[in-house]
Every structure is written in structure tokens, then in C-alpha cells.
Design a binder for these strands. Sequence first.
DNA 1: CTGTATACCGAGACGGTGTATCGCAACAGT
DNA 2: ACTGTTGCGATACACCGTCTCGGTATACAG
Lengths: 230, 230
Amino acid sequence: MTVWDRPEPPTRPAPLDRERIVAAAIALADEGGLEAVSLRKVAARLDAGPMRLYGYISTKQELFDLMVDEVHAEILPEEQPGDWREALRTRAHRTRQAALRHEWLADLLGGRPTLGPNALAVREATLAALDGLADIDTVLRAVETVGAYFTGAIRREIADLRAERDTGLSKRDFQRASGPHLRKMLATGRFPALTKAVYDATEVDAEASFATGLDWVLDAVAAKLARPPA
Amino acid sequence: MTVWDRPEPPTRPAPLDRERIVAAAIALADEGGLEAVSLRKVAARLDAGPMRLYGYISTKQELFDLMVDEVHAEILPEEQPGDWREALRTRAHRTRQAALRHEWLADLLGGRPTLGPNALAVREATLAALDGLADIDTVLRAVETVGAYFTGAIRREIADLRAERDTGLSKRDFQRASGPHLRKMLATGRFPALTKAVYDATEVDAEASFATGLDWVLDAVAAKLARPPA
DNA sequence: CTGTATACCGAGACGGTGTATCGCAACAGT
DNA sequence: ACTGTTGCGATACACCGTCTCGGTATACAG
């Protein structure tokens, strides 16, 4: 067997880095949801074996952490906002938009403490915007309360959106009559208030109701910030 | 072969029902978290093969749905509360307590629309408590906003609690100095507001901060219910 | 330049997972 | 007593995250 018969050694696979790994994982998750992300498939996208990844992460959970932090780069506003209220509001809306772009984010939101650099930068920017408006404890409570609200609201919105998508019914249609299960339950008469709500409520789009709830919470925060506690 | 040699026919396995299946699954989840729940292990607890379960549920996700609904039975308050505020507050606290008893609930909260009988009963009771205080749309927004808050707050609380448990450090210790990663990040000087928050904040227990945030949100709701919109 | 030590890469294996299939055994009807 | 039907669950399949560990490519010593 002469040299001419022997092929050149295959070009060594491009060296990996976390950035490329995370990008591949996010692409997979955007296409098929979180459950479509497997270390094998991520590695395959990078022409590597699954074990190759373990040099960069030591657990699948860590990959998820990296993905979440990566998305926080999209959430961090490019310019410092005017007042604290605007800061909190845009953080909420940008998080929501990120979750609409990357639905899997909803599955991860609030699931683990976020300590990545981008997430920390987002927190820093938020805290900076509220700095000095009240004592530290009140400020923290404010940030956490708003955060709890939008985390929960986003999760529910995405959950509803998925339900709509895979029943093929709008939320309203589903509730009104088309969802056989709910229809049966309401027909029992055991849920009068719920029935009334289902039939009489106006259909409002998700963004509007997110914004409304957010404004309420921001009003509450404003009231507490205005009057620093004893 | 006489009767004496022949063994009695094996007692037919006890017939299953969803209640027993869900109870087994919840027991498993309480002990080892959601990831300890596998159809095989659930079935094993009931002396059955995994396929046996498919007569009662058709997907693992459905088992989770049943588990969540089962826990809602613990959440439903036994007696009708006095006023709407009390109703919303006790719903929030009872959900939180349920999540402390069943930590896996935090992983599922807000993940999918809850349409089970117990969850519907909880919603019914909540809506009934607010009935007539404002137009339906405002009432719904109120319920959803409070729900978003406590869902998000509970998830974060459980996430922090787990982090504390498996780092062995209290949240405060971790942040202050012991968490090597965070310490390094703060040392960069890129997070001044965050640093100040970490070092100057008073440590408050989780229940108190949950309750405080909840009260803020309830105040906001009160303001909107008082003055029905045009 | 050669021989050896070292580091690391990744194929394969392992013990699990959720679920589809389908042979067989237990029952119901005649 | 025989037959038709039903439903159970053993087996199978495809895939998962991660451990082990043999082999090879590299770095270094002589």
C-alpha cells in the first residue's frame, strides 16, 4: 500500500468551544424544544462524539445553564433606561420576547439560580436602576417581586400557547365549547363562577394582559419605593 | 402430582386504579424528586409491569398532570374564606406549603394548563371569592396576576433551597464569600450595585419575603378592584 | 533523532428511559 | 365443551446520559 493509496489523514475536527456547543444546543432547542436537546445530537451537529462535550461541560444540566445565560445576552438592554420603572418594565418585556423566540426558556425560567455572566449583568443593570430609591432590602424585594411576576406570567403564557398549538383550538374556543373535557366539567354545574368567567370574559391578547399585570405590580412597587419603610 | 405439590394459583395482582398509581408516583417524587419517577418504578411499587399503567394513562406527561391535580386537593381550602384578599392570600400560601411538602411541584407549576377537577375547584373557589367585585375581565386579570406572582416566587424559592442544599452553604454565605464563582465575579468590579446588595442586604426568611411580595401584589389588586375601569 | 511518559480523545459499554407490538392466556357466549 | 374475543404484560426498540479505558497523538528527556 503506497502513499498514493492512503488517504490524507482526515482534517482534525475543528476545535470546539463552549460558544459553539451552546449555539448548537440552542438551535436544536429552538427547532424541537428542550427535549430535542440531547448530548448526542448536539455533538453530532459539531461532527463530534458525545463524549467530546464533557471537556467543556460536565453535565447536561450545565449545558442548560449555559443556554439560559446565553439568552440573557439578548435580554440585557443595550442602553441604560431612564427611570427605574422603565428599567423593570423593559426587563420584563425583553425576557418575554426572548421566551417567545426560544420557547424552551419558559421551561428553564426560575428552575435554577442564574449565576452566569450575562444573567448577572442583567441583575446588575436592574439593581443599578433602582439604586438609592429606597433601602437595599426594599429594592431587593421590589426586583424579586417583579421578577416572580414576569417569570410566572411568561411560563403560563407559553404553556397556554403550546396547548393552543397542539389542540388546534384557540384558548377561547377550547374553553367555550370545543374542549370536550372542560365542557363536561362546566356542565356539571359545580363551577358557576368559572363558567361565567369562561363565557363572559373578553378575549385579550397575551401581550396586553402581560403588560397590564406588569403595570399593576409596578404600581405596587412604586407605592413602596415612594415611602421608604421605618 | 397431587394437590399438595401444586401451588395455589398466584393471587391475581390487586386491580389498579389511577388513585393508587398517582399515589405511588407522588411517593416516589417526594422521595427522590421528579426524575426519580419512571413508569417502571411506579409500576414496580404496585407489583406490576410498566405496560400495565398504559391502561390508565397514555403518557408519562399525563401521569404528571394527575399528580399535579392530586396536590391541588391539598391546596383547596376547607372553608370559604371571608374576603377576597384572604382568599387569594391563602391560596398562595397553601400552594407554597404544598410545594414545600412536594418540591417537585415547583418543577411542574405553570408548566401546563391545569384542567383537572381539583385544580378547577381551586380556580372556582378563587373566582367565587372575587365575584362581583369588579367586571369579569378585571377579576380575571387579578387572579392571573396573583397566580403569576406566587408561581414565580415559589419556583425561585425552591430553586434557591435546592442550591443551598447541595452546595451546603446558606444563600447568604454562598453569595458573600464562600461561593468561589460569585466571589470572583464580584471582584471584577463590574457589578457594583449587585455587590452592594449582596453585602448590605439583611437576611430575611423565605416565608416572610414571599408574604411581603404577595402583600404588595394584593395591594395593587385592591387598588384596581376598588375603582372598576370605565 | 529516538524512546518514553503523559494527556486526552472518543468508541464502546452500561444501566436506564418511554413506549409499540403482539403472542398468549383468561374469560364470555353459545 | 368449544370457540371468539379481549386485554395483559413480556419482549423489543430506539434512545438517553455518563463511565471506563484502550489507543493514539503529543510533549519531553536523553
